[in-house]
Design a protein around this nucleic acid. Structure first.
Length: 290
DNA sequence: AATCGTTCCTGATAGC
DNA sequence: TGCTATCAGGAACGAT
């Protein structure tokens, strides 16, 4: 799942590859992926002939800024990932099962073709990703979603005090709180498990019952884990790939997520998995006592 | 205001 | 072998 480190890896890759590129054509075979504007015809018209000016990130959202300052927002959700390359489009038939001929993968449902021949594609098995076009930073910033987004955990002004402030009064379970984009952006199921394992905190611990020292540990590992994961170009346990189609290497640092039944690398106890809402927490019941 | 359940979607896997 | 049933999972949304 693309979380902050994967999205950061993606935008860095895009900056290397598509800045200055002029859009020639846009293809879509899963109409629900483009949410704004409603009409794909209108969406396409607004993109064609524009150049890519800048690539940014806000939380898990990728923002592709065009030369008229409008922005393409891509949220990769669970299985989405952007790829840069050149593919043979001659067999491309919208609304067919195999949208593109080999060697393109069969899960590409959205594609921007540049004048140079280069392409930007969204591969997404689950089709949960979302693509939107916003007229300006201002319009996007005023949207309900962006107004409610929490602070960026890797910003310099995200201090321990700031974290305490964000967690204050929260009665919910710490794992849920860490994954809540309104409280802090960028952390999802993988990194919340990894941060809590390192901080030795039970994912079901009620946030308001955390001790000062424990919040400090969480703070410390939010920074360490996210930075390390960016350095390693993210986690490719599941579908995520860099824009070049390569796997990230965070797997070698993965201590808890999807390690059910394996020995905890710290104490040897077996890692367990427990449902938390619609998803699952992986943790060591011995190191991470409630 | 906060929290909970449902929805979107389909490959992988299990069970028969 | 081939069918059906179940499940994962980010975030919006409606309901409580």
């Amino acid at each position: 799942m693309p979380e902050l480190p994967e999205v950061e890896t993606t935008i860095r890759g895009l900056r290397k590859n598509i800045l200055g590129q002029e859009i020639k054509n846009v293809f879509l075979d899963a109409p629900n992926l483009v949410k704004k504007p409603n009409s794909f015809k209108v969406f396409k018209k607004k993109l064609v002939s524009r150049k890519i000016k800048e690539i940014k990130r806000r939380g898990k959202n990728i923002l592709i800024v065009l030369d008229n300052n409008s922005l393409i927002l891509v949220h990769q959700k669970i299985s989405g990932h952007l790829l840069v390359g050149k593919w043979d489009l001659k067999n491309w038939q919208p609304k067919t099962k195999g949208p593109l001929s080999e060697p393109i993968n069969r899960f590409i449902h959205f594609l921007i073709e540049f004048k140079s021949g280069l392409m930007l594609a969204l591969s997404d098995v689950r089709k949960f990703a979302k693509i939107e076009l916003w007229e300006s930073d201002r319009e996007l910033g005023n949207s309900k979603e962006f107004k409610s987004l929490g602070p960026e955990p890797l910003d310099k002004n995200f201090t321990i005090t700031k974290l305490k402030e964000r967690l204050a009064g929260k009665k919910s379970l710490i794992k849920k709180v860490l994954m809540d984009q309104k409280i802090i952006v960028g952390i999802g199921n993988i990194y919340s498990d990894e941060i809590l394992w390192r901080a030795k905190i039970h994912p079901f611990k009620k946030t308001n019952l955390l001790k000062e020292k424990q919040i400090k540990e969480i703070y410390k590992y939010i920074k360490i884990v996210l930075k390390k994961a960016i350095e390693l170009k993210g986690e490719s346990f599941s579908d995520y790939r860099t824009p070049e189609g390569k796997k990230g290497f965070f797997d070698k640092e993965r201590k808890a997520y999807q390690r059910t039944g394996e020995k905890c690398s710290r104490c040897g106890e077996k890692i367990i998995r427990k449902k938390i809402g619609a998803r699952s927490a992986h943790f060591c019941p011995k190191c991470q006592k409630i």
